[in-house]
């Protein structure tokens, strides 16, 4: 048991556990935001586990999750557009928490990986995580709108 594994365990217990509960209970607007946050937390936990177990292939799992997680949130935004239109998610605490937590995890991992392609790959995954989380959160807030506001990701979510 080293520090990386302990950090991953803490992230899973204190982060993914509550967000999974948030996905399973409550109104739709909380559940989709919790789904968005859960994919980000699981990706960060996978990165920590990759370093803790010293298996670089787990980083590829995190990379795939960083791409597919926000895509899944966009799919939910599209499918639940009517419910979200009636009650859109408000507040950006989830997004800001994600934006703050990702560097806290990615930067120590880059330092541990040392200068090189591995660190660049971790930075790319971190950037994907933050960008994907923000795009998906914006799409969720604008999912049900039928006017021209909320363009961009909301347009894509409406198809």
């Amino acid at each position: 048991m080293n520090g990386w594994l302990a950090a991953a365990a803490a992230l899973l217990a204190c982060g993914v556990g509550p967000t999974l509960w948030g996905v399973a209970t409550g109104p739709v607007r909380r559940r989709v935001v919790a789904q968005n946050t859960a994919t980000l937390l699981v990706c960060l936990a996978t990165l920590l586990l990759a370093q803790g177990y010293d298996r670089s292939s787990y980083v590829d799992v995190a990379l795939v999750l960083a791409v597919l997680g926000p895509a899944g949130t966009l799919v939910y935004a599209r499918l639940l557009a009517e419910d979200l239109k009636a009650a859109p998610p408000t507040g950006r605490a989830g997004t800001w928490a994600a934006v703050a937590l990702t560097p806290l995890v990615v930067v120590p991992l880059c330092v541990a990986a040392g200068p090189g392609r591995a660190a660049l790959k971790l930075l790319a995954i971190g950037a994907l995580l933050v960008a994907g989380n923000m795009v998906a959160a914006r799409a969720l807030r604008g999912a049900g709108r039928t006017d021209c506001e909320g363009a961009g990701p909301a347009e894509a979510a409406r198809g």
Binding site: S56, D60, L63, R117, L120, K121, A124
Partner: peptide
């Protein structure tokens, strides 16, 4: 591609 693969 070069960034993401394991060995070059």
């Amino acid at each position: 591609w070069l960034l993401l693969i394991g060995s070059v």
